[in-house]
Write a protein that binds this DNA or RNA. Sequence first.
DNA 1: TTGAAAGCGCTAACAC
DNA 2: GTGTTAGCGCTTTCAA
Lengths: 323, 323
Amino acid sequence: MKARLTEVAKAAGVSTATASRVLSGRGPASATARRRVAAAASELGYLPHAAGRALATGRGTRLAVVVNGRTEQVLEDPYVGRVVTAAAKVAAAREVGVSMHWLPLHAPAELARLAENPAIGGMVLLNPTESALRAAPKSVRGRLAAIGVGSRHVPSFDVDNGPATARLVAHLLGGGRRRVAMITGADWLPCTHRTVTAYRETVEAAGFPARVVPGDFTAARGACAATEILARWPDTDAVFALGDLAALGALGALQRTGVDVPGDVAVAGFDDLQFAALSSPALTTSTHPVETIATACATAVLDQRLGRPVTRYSSELVLRATA
Amino acid sequence: MKARLTEVAKAAGVSTATASRVLSGRGPASATARRRVAAAASELGYLPHAAGRALATGRGTRLAVVVNGRTEQVLEDPYVGRVVTAAAKVAAAREVGVSMHWLPLHAPAELARLAENPAIGGMVLLNPTESALRAAPKSVRGRLAAIGVGSRHVPSFDVDNGPATARLVAHLLGGGRRRVAMITGADWLPCTHRTVTAYRETVEAAGFPARVVPGDFTAARGACAATEILARWPDTDAVFALGDLAALGALGALQRTGVDVPGDVAVAGFDDLQFAALSSPALTTSTHPVETIATACATAVLDQRLGRPVTRYSSELVLRATA
DNA sequence: TTGAAAGCGCTAACAC
DNA sequence: GTGTTAGCGCTTTCAA
């Protein structure tokens, strides 16, 4: 049942060192040794003892998912749940666990404290701010990556939201919309800027005014923002919200005001959450391959393959009824 | 920075054994020793090395969240994400990580294999079937608990969905509905039976017929089920779906068929997902304190306080527009 | 109540 | 290529 390295080595007729080399994949070993050790291991159902390995290598037993945010509530965000789930799968395959940590916006140095924890073998930074990236100590380089913006020393895995925003806005314009307003994401999030810029450039290139209202990814704020938009610019004929939740909030607010969607005003979101397909009318949006991104990021960290500084994942337009 | 037990012991002027006893809280220690070790530890910012401790105690470095389900896709369910998030918080506070595992319905014995993994210090079984509970080996007793049904040896933490269902159905009847249909959850899930029974008893006690259609918690199935219900029993004036997703699917299907909700047919769900408040009309449902339940379950497992065999959490009716 | 010392299972120098 | 051996940091007998 609980075969240990010693037993495997004995069964294979080699020393524990050789068995270790073969099973961990580092260090030299003859073809014969490889074969015999592998056979013995699978015969005995050998599973490396994570704590023993961690203690010897100092590489830790956990992958930390560190989430930047204003309050600890960010950890409750379903988006975070999706990232953790994906990371946990990658981690489990490597016999490590996952832990979640809130990184307060105002205390980026907390990151360095986490990095000191010997149990943490790698870190995935979620939605980092520039200051969080700067706070990453040299000691964690090579075992840290970001989902969101990165830096010179922190590789980034992110959705290609600039071009996706441009495509979505172009679709609205192509459908005859002339006054497209945008509800942004939280202002502290670097990725918000990219999308706002893409939006601005697209509408202005077409000769139309940019109308930006701050959002924070919540439905409640999306609803308020939509109301504000109509009050400030009554001729608005399309609303693009960063985040489906905000878009759904805006959609509800518009409908309650008696505005016909998409007749009077088109609405589009971003992320393609499960519920985007369930609203009435169903929400037009752009995909966000969160699981793919998180899996790649966690894999890169755990396998220490942090090659490219930036890896972008494309977002696809999903045309439904609201726009 | 990285103070180890040796340093703490030295600073406190005691042996590592004494320092260990004080810091781990087990074993005797004089008041003086306690005080001095505690002072030294906090002074040096000591953080126990999880791998070292795990290796010595054999208690593992991870809390496994084991999810029963038909396919590995269950791990992608947002509900699982919520449980893992809550468990990860509890775990992080105790310097352990979390891992996720799919327990196939047809291979409950897989549970025993997981239990053999020395890295796994505790297990939270999510939505276990009776056979999964039976497959739990004696060796894991005391470090295993279930979210969902339990057994004699596996303590259960669950929402009180029987009474909640009865209350919800009673509300529908109280509002004048006479032909209440129910869309159930996945049939392999033990908790489905409890709710179906509660529904059945409530409508029958009021002298109305029970109309049960199978569901699987998905919106797509909820939509089909609603269509089936109308085809089979055209006089249905209320639909109760187990799971808001199914309810939202049903709501959409009814609306597309030209049925007025709640005018012609009332709709109610279960779980009070974030999106229940966002549909139009907004969904009437019953709360499901997933985070509270998961936190309690994970805490009980990690702190080995598995006292009560069953802990129930009450679900509250949330009245909105659909019923 | 305390300290010395023997491991827990593994990896990594180092010598062969 | 391979084996010997010394730890990684902690807990836990066991003697004192």
